[in-house]
């Protein structure tokens, strides 16, 4: 995904130039990766990361290797451009089929640019497997996964047979910022063609047998009609600034009294 905190790649009209935007691992996917690595430590499983995007998205896989992921797949194809969540989920579920066997698919809760939280459940629907979204805790034994998901003001305990898709809540685990390998070392290693081919596979729609009519613009039931910048409100704030904070608080209270905000009603008598 493009780095939304970076100014690079944002056009003057506010739209995103995804080819120019700086690329980074979606922060929400860090939690999914961390959960995957926890499962790996407990079971000897292997972690394969899948990224769909233009060729520079390989950076995201390299970042995942630094954290301890084993393999990466990059799905890249011009015909994927402008995919909405349905088309993205279709393409990603075809990658899963291409990979063959799996037990647990983890996704982030949402992306920070699209911010829809839809791709995970839509992959699960395409694969016809159950899902646990907003998952905070999970444990696996005898091919049964016990999970806890967040609901408003509480949680749900869920049991499900593998395979399953999990979207990982960002409250699931505090992020562990250490990396298992430094970036320069991973990049150096990947300069060796055999190592690169062993760990990263780049695939197209044809490789994975996906129908191009179901991806990109053609496969997307939605379209962005119009975007506009959220205008800067402001200028109307009354700021108290002066010698003493006592004065400032007094002036604020004076305003509150005279402006008929009726805040007295809300104060404990």
């Amino acid at each position: 995904m493009p780095d939304t905190s970076s100014k690079a790649g944002v056009n003057p009209d506010g739209t995103i130039d995804r080819a120019r935007a700086k690329r980074m691992l979606n922060p929400f996917d860090r939690y999914a990766l961390q959960k995957a690595l926890e499962i790996k430590r407990g079971s000897g499983a292997e972690v394969t990361c899948v990224a769909m995007g233009p060729p520079p998205a390989v950076e995201v896989l390299i970042e995942a290797f630094e954290h301890g992921a084993d393999y990466g797949i990059l799905l890249t194809d011009k015909r994927l451009a402008a995919s909405d969540t349905l088309a993205t989920a279709y393409a990603l579920h075809k990658v899963v089929h291409y990979l063959g066997d799996f037990d647990v698919i983890l996704t982030g809760l949402q992306t920070t640019d699209g911010d829809t939280a839809q791709v995970g459940p839509q992959i699960a629907e395409r694969l016809n497997i159950p899902q646990i979204t907003y998952c905070e805790h999970l444990s696996i034994s005898d091919r049964i996964l016990k999970g806890q998901r967040i609901v408003e003001g509480g949680n749900q305990e869920i049991e499900v047979h593998l395979p399953v898709l999990i979207t990982v809540a960002n409250s699931a685990t505090p992020l562990d910022y250490k990396r298992f390998a430094d970036g320069a070392a991973v990049k150096e290693l990947l300069r060796r063609p055999e190592e690169r081919d062993r760990r990263i596979k780049t695939v197209s729609l044809d490789t994975i047998g996906a129908n191009p009519n179901r991806t990109g613009l053609l496969g997307s039931p939605t379209v962005v009609g119009k975007t506009w910048k959220i205008g800067d409100v402001g200028g109307s704030c009354i700021v108290f600034k002066g010698e003493s904070i006592e004065r400032e608080v007094d002036e604020l209270m004076e305003h509150l009294r005279t402006n008929g905000r009726n805040i007295e009603e809300l104060i404990n008598a």
């Binding site: 640019d113 939605t222 379209v223 959220i230």
Partner: peptide
């Protein structure tokens, strides 16, 4: 809102 809440977008699914 989209793109880190700096934009608003009108999304359509007319088909």
């Amino acid at each position: 809102p989209s793109f880190g809440e700096s934009l608003k977008a009108r999304i359509l699914g007319p088909w």
